[in-house]
Design a protein around this nucleic acid. Sequence first.
DNA 1: GATTTTAAGACTTATATAAGAGTTAGGCCA
DNA 2: TGGCCTAACTCTTATATAAGTCTTAAAATC
Lengths: 254, 254
Amino acid sequence: MVADIQRRKLVLALSNAKGSIPLYMQIKDMLVARVTEGEWAPGDIIPSEIQLARELNVSQGTVRKAITELVENNVLVRRQGRGTFVATHDNDRALFHFFHIVDDSGSKNLPESKTLSCRRKPASRQEASKLNLSSRAQVVCIERIRNLDNQPTIIERIILPTALFGDLGKRQARNLPNTLYELYETQFGITIHRAEEQLRAVAATDRDASLLGLEPGSPLLEIERTALTLGGRPVELRISRCSTSKHYYQNTVL
Amino acid sequence: MVADIQRRKLVLALSNAKGSIPLYMQIKDMLVARVTEGEWAPGDIIPSEIQLARELNVSQGTVRKAITELVENNVLVRRQGRGTFVATHDNDRALFHFFHIVDDSGSKNLPESKTLSCRRKPASRQEASKLNLSSRAQVVCIERIRNLDNQPTIIERIILPTALFGDLGKRQARNLPNTLYELYETQFGITIHRAEEQLRAVAATDRDASLLGLEPGSPLLEIERTALTLGGRPVELRISRCSTSKHYYQNTVL
DNA sequence: GATTTTAAGACTTATATAAGAGTTAGGCCA
DNA sequence: TGGCCTAACTCTTATATAAGTCTTAAAATC
């Protein structure tokens, strides 16, 4: 442990000698590394700014600048007087952060979910490519239907690499929780950090239509989301088909 | 001018005496005010951090913290060794910032535009409500069709309050530039700062279909955007209907 | 004697200031 | 024309002080 810190000091000293990369960035990278490597798990408190500053032989303000950027990136959460914590998916912000469907009055509610199926299969070419898997790797494929205001509104197909979510397919087959990202975090140690979404308008298939109680051919909003970890590794592919007769997808462009 | 600065110092001193609001926030608000009031126009350089610090009787670091937050909000742009500038819509970031349609290969190109019509009319109830106008206020209504890869892909209807964009309807009727936000900024002194977008899947009307070369009833992605100024005032309503057969709407959730 | 209230202290993050190190653009000179 | 110098910026780091939070133990109350 002490040796570990010594090594770190050495590394910092060396890269500092090289000159170019600012101290606070090196510290930032080091903090990210310690989070991704699991030294600090989501929800854990990390050492105080002063402790880190002592450990790394820099001033508190320098550590602070590194932490500030990680707070802006949603990696850490600060609470004055308490400490700094690794961000989790169990607080309100995180729960709603990746969900963009809003009802016509503008209010956002999390939908209930009913799992239709949960099985293993080889990844399709497209799935393998989007998840960076070798072709024909095994994936878990979950299908569920989600209700908003007691109306079936969204059909979701979720693709996960079996390599990462091995026993999810077997153990929890049909009683999956509503908020999957919390499950990934607590059960599999995988924290979703950001996502890329591709939206298209598509026509409802016969199956879509019967599940959602619409006419076949009705326009649906298709959202194809690739969810990534802090390290940028894609770990979930999720394709949602939404009826937008009473809801819409909300996006704020800052 | 000097009196103005003196007044500002006094205001700061007073609100500082009250105690609660941090100095850097007061400075931030003051900087925003000076931008919105037009003392500094988009593209202008603002006084250096040290000059502002002297003017306000605070240290450079405090001014810096205020400016940093405004840079994060896309209000200001910093260039090391040069100075700090009011953000404009003429750089790459701004041009692509509000445009989310990407072709299937993932590359983003700005579409060409052809104006179909440009006329004045009284605002509909919905338009008046979304733009915060008194009912039946006059608006300019622009309709245009936009090509991507030489294919008509997007039908746009743009609603602007005549009160703000008075002579736009007459003077420039049919030769509007492609990038409107730059025009708003340079010709009307209105800078779009953020936007709220509501996305739905809809069926193409006969007119949509003939303009886009599709079958009537084909699914289209409808994007209803309300664009707001720095002060949060809605100034443009834009409804786009997009064919998503070869393109999609890209959103990154951080 | 048991329970609640209060106040001090030891933490934490938040804010403000200052000094020196990088960057950039433009002028000067060979 | 091409290279060097310098002035005017921002960027990085460090330090001091303020403000918020929790623990603990003494004091007050039942």
